[in-house]
């Protein structure tokens, strides 16, 4: 298959496919022979007990980790090794399990940072902060302000992110990933550590992103209720292996999954 653009792929067709991936760190086998795919336009959940290899899977998808075996096909293009910024330039953005904001910067600058790849005015204009460079700043500021409105964080625009409460930090991080206008958005436990109200807000944002912007989302989440509500399809990992894959109800009824979560001996 040759490389394709997003427009060539219609909703419900394969956007990303992960084939026979194995990843180990020394003796630790983080992922073993896992395959699954993500369809354009869906919300795909990845669940599993602690240490199952979920975060490692996201790290493989966006190029932080290089699997020893297996291939990733994104937008019809197969690749084995790539740097994270290359994944970013192909349209993959993400949030982190432990919030990874730029702590020395304001909310606004953090979200502006998400536009980095779309800005290109050269050093000369940057030195003058005039003409093309200034126009570019303002043009991107408009996009950033739209996302700030969307996430209802106008009031903390100028606040240094280090001063924000945890729930808002997660929201800013989502904003930073969204302004990149990703083709595929990876969310690593976006609701961990949140109270019920914050979780509801975050769920609403995720659904809106998926429906309004048409963004394909891969989501890691521990809260089963949330997963059942949001996800179109779920893949379940346990000890680095895929143990189930399908629609939420189907997965929930799967004996393998029940055993894994109840901790039945292997």
């Amino acid at each position: 298959m040759s490389a394709r653009t997003l427009a060539d792929i219609s909703a419900g067709e394969e956007l990303l496919s992960v084939d026979d991936i194995s990843l180990s760190f020394g003796g630790v086998k983080a992922i073993q022979d896992v395959s699954f795919n993500i369809m354009k336009g869906e919300i795909r959940a990845i669940i599993g007990p602690n240490g199952a290899g979920k975060t490692s899977m996201l790290n493989v998808i966006n190029g932080f980790y290089h699997p020893q075996v297996g291939t990733i096909t994104f937008l019809g293009k197969e690749r084995r090794k790539m740097r994270p910024y290359m994944a970013a330039s192909q349209g993959i953005s993400r949030t982190f399990q432990n919030v990874a904001l730029f702590n020395g910067m304001s909310t606004l600058d953090n979200i502006m940072a998400g536009r980095t790849l779309k800005m290109n005015k050269n050093f000369f204009w940057q030195m003058l902060r005039y003409g093309p460079a200034m126009n570019e700043e303002i043009e991107h500021r408009l996009v950033v302000e739209e996302i700030i409105d969307f996430l209802e964080i106008e009031h903390i625009r100028k606040t240094p992110v280090s001063q924000l409460p945890y729930g808002l930090k997660k929201r800013v991080e989502l904003g930073r990933a969204l302004v990149a206008e990703p083709t595929l958005l990876l969310l690593d436990e976006p609701m961990a550590g949140m109270n019920l109200e914050e979780k509801e807000d975050m769920s609403r944002f995720i659904i809106d992103v998926n429906q309004q912007f048409g963004t394909t989302i891969a989501l890691i989440e521990h809260d089963m209720g949330v997963v059942m509500d949001l996800a179109d399809r779920v893949v379940v990992l346990d000890y680095g292996r895929k143990i189930s894959d399908g629609e939420p109800a189907q997965v929930q009824a799967d004996q393998n999954v029940i055993d894994a979560y109840l901790g039945v001996a292997h």
Partner: peptide
């Protein structure tokens, strides 16, 4: 300066 892995992910 603040978070080099996230920076790389934003395309830096």
């Amino acid at each position: 300066r603040d978070m080099d892995i996230a920076a790389e992910l934003m395309g830096v």
